[in-house]
Design a protein around this nucleic acid. Structure first.
Lengths: 215, 215, 215, 215
DNA sequence: AATGAATGAGTTTTCATTCAT
DNA sequence: AATGAATGAAAACTCATTCAT
């Protein structure tokens, strides 16, 4: 589907469909959503849908792609991040939780769609890989600096601890596990840091710690 | 649907449908599976299906219920388990991975079905709660014995570390992350133990403490 | 679509759909016919249609195939045919007109469907080829016996004169050109015979020659 | 739809649509063609279509009407035609084949459209009638001059032999039957002439007779 | 005049479920 | 008990046509 020269009205409609689709997928998953639901939500007739998208699948691909982009962008610990390893881990965890808070349901839906459609499976694999690599690099760096247990496999460790954060995000945001963000971030960070053998913040008494992250 | 007095032939047919359903849900998720698929797999006509089940939903409820039972039973660290806390954690992790290896896909499917149907949502909640409580009890006991960081919230910690194991099981079994069981169990256990501040094995001879209790 | 073990009831339904389809295609061509029309005519729900056929296309393929078979079978000048060349031509023309009277509309429809779907195009080509070859063989044989103009190209002649008969059948049966069968057959035969230079009946006693061979 | 005073730009657009429609109908028949196809081909938006035509049907009516006009005009054996009957038949056949070579597909489409829409049926009837009458007149004249078998029914003969030419044009042009024009015209003419009992050329000097008259 | 966004009636197709045998 | 034929409610998708700009 080649969408040519959209007028501003067309762009508005397309955006409305995208937004409606995102909401619908968020609330009802993939299979359950009917094109008509999306159209009703966007306030257009179902005929109009096909002016902008080929199928439900292609709408979802776009919605999911955008969400993945957001996830990715939102979880980058920028260069202005603290130098202290512990603080960096904390910043990363906080960012990750926040990124998930906007996209958690959709990511689950994507994961489910992946079961039925390889295309989405591949999309998801790529995203995971980026995160895993990033985590593994972090672990490896700490090991090289003598700050983390050198006998741990960096990738495996990243998969496991990254999974801990991801899974918690899901449980917390989607399944309603009670916790306030501060406590959650604090626990995740302490568990993560200690798990790899990172000595808690300052060599003195590690009670609180923390610095902030970048946007 | 009240199925009364099944003849042995009837029981065989019912079992075949159950098995076929389990396989089908495992391979294709929930929405995608058609009753006809299940019947074909079980070698019965679709008419027969309704002799034993009310609907696809009720078949799935039964399949999922059975899987949850298995999961639950399989992950109990029995009385013959070691007394050493570290060894107990290790045993629990190993059991957990094994239990998941048989039910991982189905659990994902159940989780997905929960999105669409509250009934499954509640089922899943209960299962989670059992595991979380068990984990939290374990952490609390270690804290009481002075073997684990007393400032950690037991429930939150159990949610997070339990999630780590569960998520890894998924990544490992469903998404094809490479790792052999020994290494996986070893890493999970080390990360878990150190995360809560449990001094690695050898050091002390842990006399009593437990992480897992029998059901 | 593999139709397995049809019960007699199933066979009846299938036959009803086939008959209904045949009628509908006869009356309304291909594109205009809706599956529901066929079902209504057959007195079954549209769901039932798909128990027996994959699509409108596959129904038509079967209907058309059957019609072609009939056409073919019906137009064979059997061994009991007269030996006299002129009489043979006459017999062939009469048979051909009769075969067309049952299938004319459908053949037009098939020809039209061929425009849109290559599959039908190929089907039609084959049918034509059989008739053309038969006709050409007949002409050639008469030429060899010195009964027909030897300078005519047998195939081209068969295409043209065969076309004359076919086209007349269409005009007569579908477009309502008035003529009684006797006169029509008589004219077609005289035109055909004289066109190839065959001396009209009586004159010589043609012992053997043939225009048509048995299948 | 009354289109009043078209500007030259309007006329250009209209002509473009007509040309595009003609091409599209030629290639894809009637039902298959979408208004959008025509518009795309003409390089205008689909909205514009309705400035010039009421519907697909009315576009086709115009396209078909024009084609019929061409057919008719092109097949007139003008006053400069030879006086010799055989030569006149030959000229008529050649003209007919040529006229068909430009309109063959469209005529088939028209014939098919006639199945669905009476309006086109009537249009077609009229065209046929003109040709048939012309042919019948020609035959009658030859009979009156003692050059053709007087026992033949003029109309029926014209229908049959005219059909031979028409059908051959279709087979040759649309279905790919191989033949070069010279041979085709030669065969058609010989078959036609001999069929009605017209003594081949040379023999006598046919002074007057005509098969075709100017419109 | 031209554009292209919007509409919605019309069709095909799927599949859970019922029912006669 | 088992079968498989029949049903019909959904849902996706197409496309001629209208209309605001």
């Amino acid at each position: 589907m080649i969408v040519k020269s959209l007028t501003s009205r067309g762009m508005r409609t397309r955006a409305a469909l995208l937004r409606a689709g995102r909401e619908a997928f968020d609330e009802h998953g993939y299979d359950t959503v009917r094109i008509d639901d999306v159209c009703a939500r966007a306030g257009v007739s179902h005929g109009t849908f096909y002016t902008y998208f080929d199928s439900k699948e292609s709408l979802f691909a776009e919605v999911a792609g955008a969400a993945m982009g957001e996830m990715f962008a939102a979880s980058v610990v920028g260069p202005s991040a603290p130098a202290d390893p512990y603080a960096r881990i904390e910043a990363a965890n906080r960012l990750y939780l926040r990124a998930w808070s906007a996209n958690s349901r959709l990511m689950r839906t994507l994961e489910h769609a992946a079961t039925a459609d390889d295309r989405f499976g591949r999309l998801l694999m790529e995203l995971r890989e980026v995160f895993v690599r990033r985590g593994a690099d972090g672990v490896r760096r700490l090991q090289e600096q003598g700050l983390a247990d050198p006998t741990l496999d960096p990738r495996l460790t990243a998969v496991m601890l990254g999974g801990m954060v991801e899974h918690f995000a899901h449980v917390w945001l989607d399944l309603g596990e009670q916790a306030d963000e501060e406590t959650a971030v604090d626990h995740l960070t302490r568990l993560w840091a200690r798990a790899i053998g990172l000595t808690p913040p300052s060599s003195t008494d590690a009670r609180s710690s923390v610095l902030e992250e970048d946007a």
